[in-house]
């Protein structure tokens, strides 16, 4: 499964993810399931970047105690119709000022790229049935739709304000 950034460009993924059983030793550049992280506690010390896996239904406030230690939050979409992940990203960016990488994983569609980016997602693990090429097509129309939009959106904006959103990860 390829990783893309907010411009739908393929980028290298140095992280490993929990397997189907959700287990794996805690180590640097491993995305730790939130419940595992919670059992260790916010005093966790790891020599290297830490990421967390927020399974579907996890709310932003549950991630909060660990936020200043995290480099990456991976938000799961069990079905693309399940929009809870958008609110998680929005809360982390807007309300809690998280500047790290927010990554979408699971069943998501290229058609959702613009919404994901506006909510503060900076990277996306593309599902096998929708490879990066499809997302690049979507990125074209997304950029067109984002540049204009109804008057009010041009006046007050609504993109999640965070450096991660402006800059492009590589």
């Amino acid at each position: 499964m390829a990783l893309i950034n907010n411009k739908a460009r393929v980028i290298e993924d140095g992280w490993s993810y929990p397997d189907a059983n959700g287990d794996g030793a805690i180590r640097p550049k491993y995305v730790i399931p939130l419940d595992v992280l919670a059992s260790v506690g916010s005093e966790i010390r790891i020599d290297g970047p830490i990421g967390v896996f927020a399974a579907a239904g996890v709310t932003a406030d549950k991630i909060l105690p660990f936020l200043d230690k995290l480099e990456l939050v991976v938000v799961e979409f069990p079905k693309f119709r399940d929009g809870r992940g958008f609110t998680v990203a929005r809360a982390l960016r807007d309300r809690h000022g998280f500047k790290g990488d927010i990554r979408a994983i699971g069943h998501i569609l290229p058609d959702q790229l613009a919404a994901l980016v506006q909510c503060g997602f900076s990277t996306i693990v593309t599902p096998p049935e929708h490879p990066p090429a499809q997302w690049q097509q979507g990125a074209l129309s997304a950029s067109r739709l984002l540049s204009g939009g109804p008057l009010l959106q041009r006046l007050i904006g609504r993109r999640a304000a965070a450096p991660a959103n402006e800059e492009e990860r590589s």
Partner: peptide, 16 residues
Amino acid sequence: EILRQWSTDHPEFTYL
């Protein structure tokens, strides 16, 4: 009208 424009393509609230 303001609510219409605000809700159009709302990135967070399109998959409620």
